[in-house]
Design a protein around this nucleic acid. Structure first.
Length: 574
RNA sequence: CGGGAUGUGGCUCAGUUUGGUAGAGCGCACGGUUCGGGACCGUGAGGUCGCAGGUUCAAAUCCUGUCAUCCCGACCA
């Protein structure tokens, strides 16, 4: 490709609409343009990268026996009503009507469609397992699209669905996908980690998320420094810690704590450590009001709490509700004498001795509160947030924290959809059984953004070789110098003959402009043809990531470059 | 959905407080000089100032409404 003919409008300045680096750089490099909030056009360079990732995903899916098909974007409401999700999915579902007033949705995911297909076509255990996937645009009317390709309303996703005859089959399909994902992200040249994740509302037993490590990631994860435990903090298991000892229980007493509403206030006022307090928070679900207790220096993990309660909604109670329940202003709630709400206590609460809690009376707290003696929780469960520095739940190690971008998730669905939609088969005994399903997604466009978040510098993008839009750019220093242009052209042709994906920057621009653009777009290799090429027969190969420059003979340069490209692609698989 | 902010040539922004016929830099076109890290000189094209009402002799500027975009939060197989 000739840069003079390429539609890659680079920008010197970053458009104000972009905030995160991947978004800014894709706009500046002329790869992406916004059409509406969360909706983008991929320009040729951006689309080439997307296609590279798609191809890697496709190869690995096929390697594991995945069969690619293409499902419709437009889906009839009937299927969604049948699965029960038409009413549950909410505003995030893009809905539309046809001219007859029939309801449709733009697919945010394809469990309904695929299950509908399989229930009609698969009848026998002999036809199982089936691993079916597509790479397709998805639509979610996000409340708040943001960060460019990281959270769009239209995005490219690979989704594979597995159909097995039993749990053992599902385990096997799950394992295959887990392996495939590991290879995919490695092949993309990314640093990533798989973590245990929260199954969320979809229900199901096991799920892992694949996280590309980046400080700009939206997800927080913890991982062990000495074993391979890693989990999304939403899910990470907390190990209870006993600090206050099992000393003698002192007698319960009420103290005046005027204006001390927060843990910090009370802690400072009574001159006691935060871990001797019991934090009491009033929550409401669609069905009930509960109070949740964690140690004063801990935080509640609302996702764990919600899963434990099995509720669809969970939010902190408003001031009025708190007053009605406790008879006190917010900040003075406590479990002692609590009526009218279930008490959900974190597993650390029963380990506490002589703790401090709100007195359910404005401006007063109770001291020497002892769980079991002064109150009894209705439920004791792990409902707190895990932080770095805590003990690993699996070994003696210590947990560290990091941030990641979720680019993939593998998920055991079980029979949720096969049951709802009636996807059954006859087993060896002629008995009807529900198919056991799994679903496995990769945010393909998000992976592109994640790659940039992880691979860039002050000058622009640094594409990993396997997903670079082009592997090399040939830059003649002076495009008016016929000698240079001639040599550059022949090198360009030689590279293409070698199968190296190459562009030649033949624009009539000053060298500085070409260098800046090459850095911005992020071609892994830059080959400069200058006066020395004409005079001495040498060209300069510059490695974008390291900045290293090697000067080599023009003769044989194409073969050498081909080898560098091949070596780097091979490296990503190690 | 709650909070905040912004809409002025392709991009970045000034002008709005105090109403008086729309500006700069970059980019773009043409000519010239340049040519190893975003050159310089000259000439030029390009904007119903988000949209709709209103006030006024006169609105980018004031008022009302509306739309869009971005940020924080809530939310998220």
């Amino acid at each position: 490709m000739r840069v003079s003919e390429l539609l890659a409008p680079t920008l010197r300045e970053a458009p104000t609409e972009a905030e995160v680096i991947s978004h800014i750089l894709m706009l500046r490099a002329g790869m992406l343009r916004k059409v509406a909030s969360g909706v983008y056009t991929y320009l040729p360079l951006g689309y080439r990268v997307l296609k590279k990732v798609i191809q890697i995903v496709r190869e690995e899916m096929d390697n594991k026996g995945g069969q690619e098909l293409m499902l419709p974007i437009i889906q009839p409401a009937e299927l969604w009503l049948e699965s029960g999700r038409w009413n549950v999915y909410g505003d995030e579902l893009f809905r539309m009507k046809d001219r007859h007033g029939r309801d449709f949705a733009l697919g945010p995911t394809h469990e309904e469609i695929i299950t509908d297909l399989v229930r009609g076509e698969v009848r026998s255990y002999k036809q199982l397992p089936q691993l079916l996937y597509q790479i397709q645009n998805k639509y979610r009317d996000e409340r708040r699209p943001r960060f460019g390709l990281m959270r769009g309303r239209e995005f490219v996703m690979k989704d594979l669905y597995s159909f097995d005859k039993d749990e053992a089959g599902l385990d096997e399909s799950y394992r295959k996908m887990y392996e495939a994902y590991t290879r995919i992200f490695a092949r993309c040249g990314l640093q990533f980690r798989s973590v245990e994740a929260d199954p969320g509302a979809i229900g199901g037993s096991s799920t892992h998320e694949f996280m590309v490590m980046a400080d700009s990631g939206e997800a927080a994860i913890v991982y062990c420094d000495s074993c391979n435990y890693a989990a999304n903090v939403e899910k990470a298991e907390a190990v209870p810690e006993q600090l206050s000892g099992d000393g003698e229980m002192l007698s319960l007493d009420e103290v005046s704590t005027p204006g001390a509403k927060t843990i910090e206030d009370v802690s400072a006022f009574l001159k006691i450590a935060g871990h001797n307090l019991i934090k009491t928070i009033v929550y409401q679900t669609e069905e009930e009001t509960v109070i949740a207790l964690v140690r004063g220096d801990r935080e509640i993990n609302e996702i764990k709490l919600q899963n434990m309660l099995g509720s669809l909604q969970l939010f902190m109670a408003d001031e009025r509700t708190v007053k009605e329940l406790t008879g006190a202003a917010p900040g003075f709630a406590g479990p002692v004498g609590m009526k009218g709400a279930r008490i959900i206590a974190d597993r650390e609460i029963p380990l506490m001795r002589n703790a401090v809690t709100g007195a359910n009376k404005t401006d007063a707290h109770l001291v020497n509160v002892n769980p079991g003696r002064d109150f009894t929780p209705d439920v004791v469960a792990d409902i707190r947030l895990v932080r770095a520095g805590e003990h690993c739940p699996r070994c003696e190690g210590v947990l560290a924290e990091a941030r990641g971008i979720e680019v993939g998730q593998v998920f055991k669905l079980g029979t949720k959809y096969s049951k709802a939609l009636g996807a059954k088969f006859l087993d060896e005994n002629g008995k009807e059984q529900l198919m056991v399903m799994g679903c496995y997604g990769i945010g393909v466009s998000r992976t592109v953004a994640a790659a940039i978040e992880q691979n860039h510098d002050g000058d622009g993008i640094i594409w990993p070789m396997p997903i670079a839009p082009f592997q090399a750019v040939v830059i003649p220093v002076s495009s008016k110098d016929e000698g240079q242009m001639g040599l550059a052209d022949s090198l360009y042709n030689a590279l293409r003959e070698q199968g190296v994906e190459t562009v030649i920057d033949d624009r009539n621009e000053r060298p500085g402009v070409k260098f800046k653009d090459a850095d911005l777009v992020g071609y892994p290799l830059r080959i400069v043809v200058g006066s020395k090429t004409v005079e001495e027969g040498t060209v300069e190969i510059r490695h974008r990531r390291s900045g290293n420059v090697q000067v080599v003979k023009l003769e044989g340069a194409a073969q050498l470059i081909k080898k560098i490209v091949a070596d780097e692609i091979a490296e990503s698989l190690k």
